[in-house]
Design a protein around this nucleic acid. Structure first.
Length: 424
RNA sequence: GGAGAAAUGGCAGAGUGGUCGAAUGCGGCGGUCUUGAAAACCGUUGUCCUUCACGGGACCGGGGGUUCGAAUCCCUCUUUCUCCGCCA
């Protein structure tokens, strides 16, 4: 969430820039400012009451020590009124805090000044397009048919075990998954990321920290008995490693990578785009997470974009990079680049990565701060993350684009992870 | 799952109702000394809210309570450790 101080200092700017996200913040911002005014006044009153009562208690203690019990008991009588006052002020203070909190979580992150206005996908700006779209032979098949033909992914079986959107990878299909995960993790390590294996169930504090809760509750699978959520992305557990943490400025940027399965309910998204691997309830993904100094977070974002691009290039897939418009940029992000690869048999661009700078929006929820050795104050850090990469659509594109009459060629970079060059 | 013990500052570890935000040691930072380093010595060393500032307030695992006053007493939750049971 945005900090109150930021809202207080730049109310007009916040309102103006949120229009790019098609969000009218004017009312919310005003409400926050009004309540904050009250909060401060309330706090001051409470503090002075407490100061008075602290002083009185101290005096009473000294009186008892000096054997002046009668005086002490007299003084005690005076405390009743102070207690009642402080009780009321404390109660009001709690109410105010929760009111402010409710308002703040409803205000989206302010988009970066370079984010174009726009309502949806169509207004996203293509900033780069590269690679060659392959000419497929005339009997070329979409990946779901290839999966069946070579018996590498079984959608019906997953349907039997769990339900739609939970495929079973078999034989060379399973090995391809494993190879991709290892390839992505090894590359991330080379790029300076530390590998972590986080839990894939998280508590509600973690869900809140990265912004999935409270508003996107319905996107996650919820284990109600223990109140845990299945992670929709490794971003959640990995970023929450830094919840309530104060880093030393020298440690920045911190770079973590993790492979996890990801679980998404995808409620309400049935229909045309969900065939085969295009949209699943469970999928594998390697994520990269950065915690950066505010002054350098956009450099870090650029480096992440370059890194993700290098992965897609290495796999030999045609791709394009989009800068998302305001309407498509998520609630919590300030700036997002999407990567899409071209899946030649479906003749479709598939989103395989989303790289975002959240600036201090998540950090404020997480209380993730850093401190310079020679500075007294702590400062909120910036958080960034990106898929590097999500497997299913990469697999879909690889299968479709690399199909030949003899079988499906496997990218050369995976050679050291696989004992075969052809899926046949 | 059952029984018991514990949770204090970066770490270790005092503190069982009153000037305790908290002794002491280690570590960190600054300094003296040194050609440099070590040792020794001196100083400093948590977070948050509020205030232009002085100052004030909150925090000793989380929440609640008792009391004029709580790190200290009570309730509750969480976590850790030990023992038993179960188990990959």
């Amino acid at each position: 969430m945005l900090t109150i101080n930021y809202l207080k200092e730049n109310p007009a700017e916040v309102i103006e820039r949120l229009k790019v996200k098609n969000f009218d913040a004017s009312k919310l911002v005003q409400q926050v400012l009004d309540i904050d005014q009250e909060r401060r006044q309330n706090q001051q009153e409470l503090d002075s009451i407490l100061a008075e009562s602290n002083a009185l208690s101290k005096e009473i203690g000294i009186m008892f020590k000096n054997g002046k019990a009668a005086e002490a008991n007299e003084a005690k009588a005076k405390t009743g009124e102070l207690k009642e006052k402080s009780r009321l002020l404390t109660q009001r203070s709690n109410e105010i805090d929760s009111e402010i909190w409710k308002l703040l979580v409803e205000i989206p992150n302010v988009p970066h000044s370079s984010v174009p206005a726009g309502k949806g996908e169509k207004e996203n700006v293509e900033i780069k397009s590269a690679g060659t779209i392959p000419q497929l032979h005339k009997d070329a098949l979409p990946h779901w048919d290839l999966a069946k033909k070579y018996d590498i992914i079984d959608f019906e079986l997953g349907n039997k075990l769990t339900g739609a959107g939970f495929p079973v990878y078999k034989g060379k299909g399973a090995k391809l998954q494993r190879a991709l995960i290892n390839f992505f993790l090894d590359k991330a390590e080379e790029a300076g990321y530390t590998e972590v294996q986080p839990p894939i169930l998280v508590n509600e504090y973690s869900g809140f920290g990265t912004g999935q809760l409270p508003d996107k509750e319905g996107q996650m699978y919820h284990c109600t008995l223990d109140n845990f959520y299945l992670v929709p992305t490794a971003e959640v557990p990995v970023t929450n490693i830094f919840r309530d943490v104060i880093l030393n400025a020298k440690e920045l940027p911190v770079q973590y990578t993790a492979y996890t399965p990801c679980f998404r309910r995808e409620a309400g998204s049935y229909g045309k785009d969900v065939r085969g691997l295009n949209r699943l309830h469970q999928f594998d993904k390697v994520e990269i997470v950065n915690v950066a100094h505010p002054d350098r977070s956009y450099e870090v974002l650029d480096s992440m974009v370059a890194y993700v691009e290098s992965l897609i290039k290495a796999l030999g897939l045609p791709y394009r990079i989009l800068k998302l418009c305001g309407g498509d940029t998520s609630f919590t992000a300030a700036l997002t680049y999407d990567f899409e690869v071209y899946s030649a048999a479906q003749e479709k661009w598939l989103e395989v990565s989303s790289v975002s700078n959240f600036e201090s929006y998540q950090a404020n929820r997480l209380k993730l701060r850093f401190k310079d050795d020679n500075e007294k104050k702590t400062q909120l850090a910036h958080t960034l993350n990106g898929s590097a990469l999500a497997l299913p659509r990469i697999v879909a594109a690889l299968l479709e684009n690399n199909q030949t009459e003899d079988g499906i060629r496997v990218p050369e970079v995976l050679a050291k992870y696989l004992k075969f060059e052809l899926i046949d």
